[in-house]
Amino acid sequence: MSNQTTINLEINGQAHTLAVEPRVTLLDALRDHLELTGTKKGCDQGQCGACTVHVDGERVLSCLTLAVQVEGRAVTTIEGLSDPGAELHPVQSAFLEHDAFQCGYCTPGQIMSAVSCIREGHAGSDDEIREYMSGNLCRCGAYPHIVEAVREAAKVMS
């Protein structure tokens, strides 16, 4: 524990100061240090997309990002996508509306990724959605409904 370093992070618009070892990933910092457990740990090796968050507005994998690397950058997690008590984000609503999940484990990552997919302009067709959502795996195989949800949310967001 001698190698801890103090870092300042901005998560969902809130400033946090925490002491972590340099090897601690953003994913572990969120879940274990900040109790933001909406971001899920799937493979922990950059293959499944369950840990997708936004850094400076772009989707990245928090399992392959060191917490210390994102000092000075704005991090958004699923908890910060809509304000508590406020209306859900259109992508969250679309996932509910279209039943775009079964077990729900991959869903926070799917939703964070889908928000970016739409924002980037990569939701123009079902094929394009499938290509640009390919970094998010769903072991339940809810893909057809996920594609529907992204397609419909893209209409609402445009």
Partner: peptide
Amino acid sequence: LLAGGTTLLDLAKCGVNAPERVVDITH
């Protein structure tokens, strides 16, 4: 050297990389 981290951290988790020092060049 640490840039995007997608290889360095992946292989550190696999036990292929075991750096003693990591130099972050992303800033």
